[in-house]
Write a protein that binds this DNA or RNA. Structure first.
Lengths: 246, 246
DNA sequence: CGCTCTATTGAATAGATTCAACCAGGGTGG
DNA sequence: CCACCCTGGTTGAATCTATTCAATAGAGCG
């Protein structure tokens, strides 16, 4: 974990205060976390950690987007996780990392040395509890993703990804944070391909296919407009209630 | 959750005593769990729970094998988890289930009412801690599985599955529990197909392909002999250290 | 012995990949 | 300022892998 060390910010003004591992902490517990935390930043494209690395820190993503990937020697790579603000990196009790972690935008991490963090985990059940909750959420997301990878067609995969991004613009409390009819894609075609288990060419073809069928409109490479969200949902292959993927 | 209710057994002689959620408990904590537990059995093929069910119990698998599956309306189904003895069903804090749970062999569950279990989780950090550990292990397994589903060829998928089953005959402490050169497949071709994101025909073809290439030998439908484990490992596409899938 | 369920095999098809060419936009440097 | 290149994206044609549909083969069982 290279990256630049930053001055820490006060927890009370932290953007992920109520979603990260510290979400359930009271003021006192928060100050205990505050005592051992430090910030680091990584530039877009930078490697945060590699598979097999001995990892003596764990961290929360404060800002930016990172990916978890598994790669095989011949170059095939599969994204196995998308890390957004409040997501957690590393696992207590295991010193080595199982995946490559890469910053896809500029990333700020709130880091803790593993040992003190593990000690703290025992003292503060609220952190343990939140960590369990987050792990179970990620497990559900991973399993939805497995359905997508194993059984969906290329077109369904693309539609599912767009729905996922659209849903992301809606806050957990239901408040709409942006226009769901106009999406800004946070990732490149290549990243999408690794996400969906496809090649970039197929991703591209499906985009133009959906465009020609009037399901989406493209404005440059990164802006997608969705005239009819219901229509897109239909293309995902999901039943209406299914497949949250986060 | 239908199923037949059984007399409970004493925890001290329980086969999953040291691997399940109770693994870290002392005698006193164990007796608290003992007070609220009850056993249920399900016959092979029986549905244990369906996606969307309100689930007022959580449970550990004591004996037998069950599957977690997601299905889409048109019938496509993807296995998203394999439940073996000591694995846990249900999640504290959420009342509905995300997947279909099916017994593939006769299954015995050690059940707890959700509410008392959640209360107990707060009183006994050892359970919480173990549950976190198990959730994180499952998350790692799910992610390995994603690599398989997204990027591996049919042949590699079959080889990976066989390796997985071979590894399962080795106890976590390294003790070999069976002959790794002779495997008994615990699941049908159809279950394998749903596991691997393939059709049964493709599964069958890959089996005969591997047989014709001398990688495996078939003795009936359920017995596979592996003359050269290294050779099989090569076919998985994994680098030697990678991809534990459990 | 015939029935059913599971598995295998074959032939045709479809969906995604591969390889290659091309295009657009954004620097860089002469 | 413009030619040049470089990166990321799109498109086309050929290929290939896995699926689909259909027929056949075994295994287990009443």
């Amino acid at each position: 974990m290279a990256g630049r060390v930053l001055a820490t910010q006060d927890c009370s003004s932290c953007p992920i205060r109520h979603r990260a591992v510290c979400a359930r902490c009271d003021e006192d517990e928060l100050s205990q976390l505050n005592d051992i935390k430090f910030y680091k930043t990584y530039a877009a494209g930078q490697t945060i950690a590699m598979r097999g690395d001995a990892l003596d820190v764990v961290a929360s993503v404060v800002a930016g987007t990172a990916t978890l990937e598994r790669v095989i020697e011949d170059g095939r790579t599969q994204m196995v996780g998308l890390l957004l603000p409040s997501d957690f990196i590393g696992r207590p009790g295991r010193p080595t990392l199982q995946y490559d972690v890469t910053a896809v935008s500029d990333v700020t991490l709130c880091c803790f040395q593993r040992k003190p963090f593990e000690a703290l985990l025992i003292r503060i059940p609220a952190v343990q509890q939140r960590l369990l909750e987050m792990a179970l959420d990620e497990l559900d997301a991973a399993r939805d993703w497995m359905l997508l990878l194993g059984r969906k067609t290329a077109r369904e995969k693309i539609a599912s990804l767009l729905m996922l991004i659209a849903k992301r613009t809606v806050h957990p409390d239901g408040k709409v944070m942006g226009d769901t009819t106009r999406l800004e894609l946070p990732i490149s075609r290549e990243t999408m391909a690794n996400f969906l288990g496809l090649t970039i060419e197929t991703v591209s073809r499906q985009f133009t296919g959906l465009r020609k069928d009037g399901v989406i409109e493209l404005d440059g490479n990164r802006i997608v407009r969705i005239p009819d969200l219901e229509g897109l949902l239909f293309e995902t292959g999901d039943d209406s209630d299914g497949g949250t993927l986060f």
